[in-house]
Design a protein around this nucleic acid. Structure first.
Lengths: 204, 204
DNA sequence: AGCGATTTTTGAACGCCGTTCAAATTTTTC
DNA sequence: GAAAAATTTGAACGGCGTTCAAAAATCGCT
């Protein structure tokens, strides 16, 4: 019985990601411990470092999965021909809903701090980048004259703004913030974009 | 020479806050170490815990100072009679500028994660809450018919959205984000609010 | 001023963490 | 089947926040 070397490594890799994901879902980023992880995945502590350079890399793998799941949720949210306001509102509310449903996993994506000089791996930024494209459809309908560059930049801006509202609400960094209040804020915000953006991007 | 008991404690408290602030400004939240702190402030490690229940409490004290400083910057940014668009744009750009000038201290405010169940102390939320009031002036000029409650909620929303744009830009969580790009995004965003909010808050 | 009671300060020690690396084990090669 | 190479192992390391028995300082009283 030849257990196929690289396949065994790949299986351990998957087991570790699943174990890490479960730990994060149960207790947040700070609940991720090398020793617990090794026990859950059924390997020695040192084995983790045969597959990942450090726990940060493992966290990136988990966070990428969370982002992929969010991507799928957003993709299922709108049809291509939905009008811009409905589409933007649904996207924002879907984002909010996901962040509530997957509270800890989603928080981990943004709470994860990497050492000062370094930046996220390229493959990871690619996964992040896919998220913006959902907004680009509605934006194109709303701003037919905008260049793809302008639209791309704007998609990023709207994503960031939505993220700010959802994120500060979820972590309650600004005080209590009930679900319904956040949702209403998102509705007003998206409505304001639909009314204001066409004039705002046009040159003076 | 009676060295006045409570005064000595207060002095140590201040020394610790200053030492912590310097550590954070030099190397971020993760550079805050109890032993280094004690040495800088000229006390024993255990003495920290005579003044603060734990390092989290000390971090709140530092972050409150940072927020007070931001509050002062925002207060100096606009005159009472500035038109809404100019005021909002200046506030957003001032927020962005502060986050760049005080990169590490500002990052510490939002990167600071408290244990799962607990929430920030009330006095701290009070300091945070003061920040929103700067937006309320311009908002009142823009939406004369809005109730104070609506204005208050909206101020929070706009703050959160601005924060999202500045924050994701600064941490480069979505990829590279040069200063000028972020600033331009804020200009478009505030312009869109001025054009769109009056219609967006009005009932259908 | 003297001296026992009380409070405050001290820093070695504790438990836990991510990570390493010499040794044990497994797999490959001939 | 045995020697060589590659992989896996887990005790050990250095560093962390926090604690707490002991030491030092201060207070209360005569």
């Amino acid at each position: 019985m030849t257990t196929d070397l690289p396949a065994k490594r790949a299986r351990l890799r998957d087991d570790l990601i699943l174990a890490a994901e479960a730990a994060i879902a149960a207790g947040g980023l700070s609940a991720l411990k090398a020793r617990t992880l090794a026990e859950t995945a059924g390997c020695a502590v040192g084995a983790i470092y045969n597959v990942f350079p450090d726990l940060d890399a493992l966290i990136f793998a988990v966070n990428a999965r969370t982002l992929e799941k969010l991507d799928a949720v957003l993709a299922a949210t709108i049809r291509p021909d939905t009008d811009p306001e409905t589409a933007m509102r649904r996207l924002a509310l879907a984002y909010h809903g996901f962040s509530r449903a997957e509270r800890r996993r989603w928080t981990a994506v943004f709470a994860h701090q990497i050492p000062d000089g370094s930046s996220p791996p390229d493959w990871y930024l690619g996964v992040v980048g896919k998220l913006f494209r959902h907004i680009e459809g509605p934006l194109a309908a709303l701003l037919p004259d905008a260049t793809p560059e302008v639209r791309g930049g704007l998609a990023r801006t709207l994503f960031s703004a939505t993220h700010g509202i959802v994120s500060l609400g979820l972590e309650e960094k600004l005080g209590p913030a009930p679900d319904e209040v956040i949702a209403q804020a998102l509705v007003v915000m998206t409505r304001s974009w639909v009314l204001g953006l066409p004039g705002a991007v046009a040159p003076r």
